[in-house]
Write a protein that binds this DNA or RNA. Structure first.
Lengths: 189, 189
DNA sequence: GACTAAGTGGAACAGTCATTCCAGTAGAGT
DNA sequence: ACTCTACTGGAATGACTGTTCCACTTAGTC
């Protein structure tokens, strides 16, 4: 049974857990590197066995790393939703979402096909908050009402990720995307 | 040296080449299946060695399969560009592009990271044609002029692929995407 | 300063996959 | 029909990767 995925009891093990997590997080921003257990372990200065054992598997490690990146984004979305006029929350959040995905777009690549419970839950949370943003904007007349909020959220999330994945990163492309998307979401004249 | 990638001389080998190509093409539309040489070979009723040897490698086989799908799309874009009023060509082509990518979206997944010379060339051709569509639409006042045609083409290509990748496929999402994209591309009021 | 259990990591293992080998098969020309 | 060789495909190979093993190390406690 060994340690499986429970929090380690010893201080050095806790430190190694942090090192592995930081290394994985750093590699999520480097699309060139293979993102294997071996690579993560070498970056963290640990053995591959330690990295795997501490988290109970590579998937769980990536789940933790991606979640650590995603959680502040969800929180930021919640803050904007609560503290901003409804029509404006989307305008403010979308550029931040694209910028975040640009900085960590390998994280997005990992989202699909893997079993990552925490990350999946966070994505659900983010989708729900964005749906509320869209609904609020629709009530304010800032967004067209002929698209379902859930569909609009899916549309935004998928396209934003695709734009962020562009390599080399292009600010021109991001700007054009935001311009076109925000105009396209406005109610038709 | 064997046969490498040259066209086979014998009739049965030619038939097997076609079988392998058809099997690979069919699997490109089935995201569930692994798309391994073994899978392609079994689908084609051949041995894995034959499939690999006939094309000189898995990459070359996928290059041929994807190119076979992409070439008609490029031709269709050329026809629309030549035979349609400039402002309308984009409106007609975009739904077809999304529909094509939806039907064969595994092909899009294969486009990245592999060495596929023919496919890469075709993508370049398609980008060039779409840029001309955008330029024509801009001259006609149908598309906003504050986005570079090359940037707009990259924007369209990336987002269309992302929408087509949605699973399960959602016509609602496709419709919303086309609505938002086309309105967003129009000159601002 | 020991003692003990938690923790480590190099090595072995297991699974997947593309590619190559080679003994056997079967077209194609005569 | 016969032969020659292009071609086939099951098996072996090699590369890669995540996981497990186990002899060894070390943090935490008395």
């Amino acid at each position: 049974m060994s340690t499986s995925s429970g929090t380690p009891r010893r201080a050095d093990a806790l430190r190694n857990r942090r090192l592995a997590l930081d290394a994985a997080t750093a590699l999520l921003a480097e699309p060139g590197t293979p993102l294997t257990v071996e690579t993560i372990a070498r970056r963290a200065g640990l053995g591959a066995a330690t990295v795997v054992r501490t988290f109970g598997g590579k998937d769980a490690l990536l789940d933790a790393a991606v979640s650590g990146l995603l959680a502040p984004v969800v929180q930021r979305a919640r803050d904007l939703l609560a503290g901003t006029e409804s029509g404006r929350a989307l305008d403010l959040f979308l550029p931040e979402l694209v910028a975040f995905q640009s900085a960590h777009h390998s994280a997005g690549d990992q989202l699909g096909g893997l079993n990552m419970p925490t990350t999946t839950a966070l994505r659900g949370d983010l989708a729900r908050v964005m749906e509320e943003m869209v609904e609020g904007a629709q009530r304010n007349g800032a967004v067209r009402t002929d698209v379902d909020p859930a569909v609009a959220t899916s549309l935004i999330g998928r396209t934003a990720l695709a734009i962020a994945r562009a390599r080399p990163p292009s600010q021109q492309l991001v700007d054009a995307y935001l311009t076109v998307l925000l105009q396209g979401l406005r109610p038709p004249a």
